[in-house]
Computed example of a mutant assay.
Amino acid sequence: MSDALLAAYDAVLFDLDGTVYHGTRVIPGAPETVRAAREHGTSVRFVTNNASKAPDEVVAHLTGLGMPSEPAEVHTSAQAGAVLLQERLEPGDEVLVVGTSSLADEVARAGLEPVRRHGDRVRAVVQGHSPDNTWAALAEACLAIRAGALWVACNVDATLPSERGLLPGNGSMVAALRTATDVVPLVAGKPEPLLFETAARSAGADRPLVVGDRLDTDIAGAVSAGIDSLVVLSGVATPKQLIEAIPAERGTYLARDLTALTEPADDLRIGPRPGWSVQVRDDVLVASGDGDDLDLLRALCHSAWETGITAIDGDAEARLGLS
């Protein structure tokens, strides 16, 4: 275990949707991996852009999936949204809530007054995911934003992983309001660094590791916060996205899923890999050799990021399922 990836860090900051579970279905091996981190003495935090559930609801869900946790280990974008509002408003100011009752409770805990309809006293709008968000709720928010209210989006994830596949996320609803108002919201959750910074501080961590499945939120947030990250392919990220990733969305390590935390760190690092050679020929990355498909992807990502060339040869495409 001394050479395992989790042993190199003093806290692991797990994304949830697509990383630990898909809706009601746990990622195979997740409970055992979280338990291994705890037994090693590595702090565990769960950092989610989903603003629809309160920390105790997240804990109940995790516990039901075999990962007993504490509310203090959960950090949500609803909490981050409430922090942004509290920093910018006066105590008692009205905030129009587009989202769940859990989001409204976070607003109230911040000393503000959650409301559901636009009025003269509304000073801000906070928007988070809820399966019950309606056109009427968006209409109230549209009126408030157009009247000059501060607008905070808990997150801008376009999609939400589920056991049935990708569903519309809060970002899709945010995009509708952006179109209707020509206003860009403040974003509380990932990829902004606040959630990761807060989670790391709560764990007393000097060297945390982010584990996530989305390049544009989890990994971009880690880069923004200056934290190493493990990209997992159990959710949204694809090999093509990894090869084409911009510098702000590039992870440190790559694995199929979070169970790799118990594997040697050197085996997971994105970079040149034993058994594989990648060369540039006519502006195409040509891989030769043999070995693990993920090692091939790690090597291709390294070469693509170093050269700026993202086209790869047909054999590698076929092997990675890109053709």
Rank of each mutant, 00 (worst) to 15 (best):
A176L: 14
G92P: 07
F14Q: 09
D290Y: 13
I270D: 10
G18A: 15
L84I: 11
L143N: 06
Q241L: 14
A225T: 00
P55R: 07
I227L: 15
D120Y: 01
G251Q: 12
L150Y: 02
T252A: 09
I27D: 03
A54D: 09
R201M: 10
D120V: 02
G189H: 00
L258N: 05
P114I: 10
D266P: 06
D105H: 12
C301E: 06
L112M: 13
A139Q: 10
E32R: 15
A260V: 11
G165M: 05
R45L: 00
A108Q: 15
D213H: 10
I270N: 06
R109T: 08
E249V: 02
E113L: 14
I270A: 10
A175C: 05
T238K: 04
D313K: 00
V47L: 08
Q241R: 13
N49G: 05
L230E: 14
Q127M: 05
A110V: 12
A78P: 04
L322I: 12
N50V: 02
D282G: 06
G189A: 00
S43T: 13
S323Y: 04
R109I: 11
A78C: 10
S102Y: 15
A11V: 09
K190T: 02
A176F: 02
A80V: 02
N49F: 02
A144K: 00
R121T: 09
P247V: 11
L16H: 07
W305P: 09
D10R: 10
D218M: 10
A205G: 15
L16S: 05
V115A: 11
F46T: 00
V59Y: 06
A153K: 00
T33D: 14
G18F: 02
A158M: 00
G169L: 04
C142E: 02
V58C: 06
L268K: 12
A124E: 00
E244A: 15
R116M: 07
D93G: 06
V97I: 10
T100H: 12
E263K: 14
L138K: 04
P239W: 08
R35Y: 02
